[in-house]
């Protein structure tokens, strides 16, 4: 067979795979512009449901709950996970192995088990703030996730660099801020983005720990599915997709900007 033909076939295959992955997203985007009353039945092109979604206070409320709890969750898991990851990489001791076992356990625990356990615990300690319940519940898994990511990166950064900073006159906290942290930033940002995404589309845990009146967006969409999906759900999904893309692009730009620092000259 000709090499050109093999190349063409491979390219075609690549296009097919990408299409397979992205067509569902394309369909949602397309149908969010469906003017009909029922989402699956195409009637006409319209932006009607976008206006309707932005007018629906229940959707807006769910979006608000989702965003706030996701951001709070990111703050908790990045703070705890970064500290834990660095501690494991830099100050390993007898506690390291049991701790890593615990982290691994959190990552493989079925969400159902974790969710029920957390509901019982939240009720026990009397935490009834909806957003805090969601944020804390989501941050359990995400703290473990950030720990693993940051640890891997911290182990890749030679400790000699911190020694070099100390040697040049930087006290430990400054060598951490100026050398360790910047080199670890990609891992921290990646951890933060993954935590956000996990929290933003989580259904299982949210379903259990949520309080009445503080439903997250995925839970709201799930409940409206029972009543029959309408175009406003697709419109919300597309809008959140846009927010996610903006976030990812922003973090990529931040990372590149961080690399291009002001010079001494």
């Amino acid at each position: 067979m000709n090499n050109d033909i093999v190349g063409m076939l491979l390219k075609a295959w690549t296009v097919l795979v990408i299409a397979f992955l992205f067509i569902p997203i394309g369909v949602v985007i397309l149908y969010s512009f469906n003017g009909g009353r029922i989402l699956f039945i195409w009637e006409e092109f319209s932006t009607f449901w976008y206006a309707a979604a932005l007018d629906n206070h229940r959707i807006l409320n769910a979006l608000d709950v989702s965003l706030r709890s996701a951001l709070l969750n990111v703050a908790i898991s990045v703070a705890l996970g970064t500290a834990a990851g660095i501690a494991i990489a830099r100050h390993a001791g007898v506690w390291t192995k049991p701790f890593m076992f615990l982290v691994g356990l959190i990552l493989v625990t079925p969400e159902l088990v974790s969710a029920i356990g957390q509901v019982i615990w939240f009720n026990r300690v009397g935490l009834d703030q909806g957003i805090f319940r969601l944020a804390i519940a989501h941050s359990l898994f995400n703290t473990a996730l950030v720990t693993v990511i940051v640890r891997a990166r911290a182990e890749g950064i030679s400790q000699t660099l911190e020694e070099a900073a100390g040697d040049l006159g930087a006290p430990p906290w400054r060598s951490f801020l100026q050398v360790t942290l910047p080199l670890m930033l990609p891992a921290v940002i990646a951890g933060a983005l993954l935590s956000f995404t996990y929290s933003f589309d989580n259904v299982m845990i949210s379903l259990f720990v949520q309080r009445p009146g503080a439903s997250s967006l995925p839970v709201y969409i799930l409940s409206s599915f029972k009543a029959g999906l309408r175009g406003d759900v697709a419109a919300v999904v597309v809008m959140t997709l846009c927010v996610t893309i903006v976030l990812v692009v922003l973090s990529a730009l931040l990372l590149r900007g961080g690399a291009r620092r002001v010079n001494a000259f």
Partner: peptide, 12 residues
Amino acid sequence: NYALFPHMSVAD
């Protein structure tokens, strides 16, 4: 191994 800071320019 020189231990130069990889995220800074030579001057930095």
